[in-house]
């Protein structure tokens, strides 16, 4: 089976992102990485093709530096990459992103599209469902476990009080949560092999899309820095620690 995994290059998840004058996240010239959430989707894709055969193709949209995200996934074991890179895509919103990804997925046969549940930097959390609707695919979202049998995708989806089991006929799309199996670390061999793997570069024109159709529909018009919570008191644990905490509970009238 052929699996396409949607991946995103995000600024260093440990660092503090910066905004430029147009209130866009600075992505060029910054240390970045494959979104940690997407690694779970890559892992899920690799496990499926290990069981069923086939290939995992990574698809990303982003600036030149986004190739680092592809390289990471390829070194984990994915077979090929597709990189949509076009200056007109800077500042793309969720709908433009979904349209580009859907157009790129459509170019070749596939059985399953996988994605993380949301990006670490934008956190919109709806792009995969929009892609699924554009491709008229059933989507099984927020999976902590996935399997495929007889052309049917089966997932476990956590809920308030437990979990649901959801089935969808292939071809389908699924999003994978951080509760899914831990992503593997690239081996040295994997890292070396990644350099030889094919990465296709596409521009908007290759996808039959025009920049006008993808114009952003959201503008940041103002920015306020949140009032910092006044820092309280920090004490070393000691004899009267419990008393201090319970005093606070009493003051809050929750005792």
């Amino acid at each position: 089976m052929n699996v396409v995994v949607l991946v995103k290059y995000v600024p260093d998840p440990q660092g503090t992102p910066e905004l430029d004058d147009a209130f866009l996240v600075v992505r060029e010239g910054t240390e970045g990485a494959l979104d940690p959430g997407d690694e779970y989707a890559v892992e899920a894709g690799l496990r499926l093709v290990e069981t069923h055969g086939g290939e995992v193709t990574l698809l990303t949209m982003g600036p030149e530096t986004a190739s680092a995200a592809l390289r990471k996934g390829l070194s984990m074991g994915a077979h090929a990459g597709v990189h949509v890179v076009d200056p007109a895509l800077r500042g793309s919103d969720a709908l433009a992103t979904a349209r580009v990804l859907a157009a790129a997925v459509r170019r070749r046969p596939f059985d399953l599209v996988l994605a993380g549940v949301e990006s670490t930097d934008g956190s919109t959390g709806t792009v995969p469902m929009t892609v699924a609707q554009l491709l008229e695919l059933p989507s099984a979202t927020f999976a902590r476990a996935l399997s495929v049998e007889d052309g049917v995708l089966r997932i476990e989806r956590p809920t308030d009080l437990g979990f649901d089991v959801v089935e969808a006929p292939l071809p389908a799309l699924a999003t994978v949560t951080g509760s899914a199996p831990e992503p593997r670390y690239p081996t040295l061999k994997g890292i070396m092999q990644a350099k030889q793997k094919p990465v296709e570069r596409l521009a908007l024109a290759d996808l039959g899309l025009s920049a006008e159709a993808l114009a952003p529909t959201q503008r940041v018009v103002g920015l306020t820095r949140a009032q910092e919570r006044a820092a309280g008191e920090v004490i070393q644990a000691g004899e009267d620690t419990a008393k201090r905490i319970v005093d606070l509970l009493a003051e809050a009238k929750v005792l």
């Binding site: 919103d93 969720a94 709806t126 469902m129 609707q133 554009l134 529909t217 959201q218």
Partner: peptide
């Protein structure tokens, strides 16, 4: 919401 966006072409 994600699917509605694809159907209406609205911003989200």
């Amino acid at each position: 919401a994600g699917r509605l966006q694809a159907l209406t072409g609205s911003t989200l």
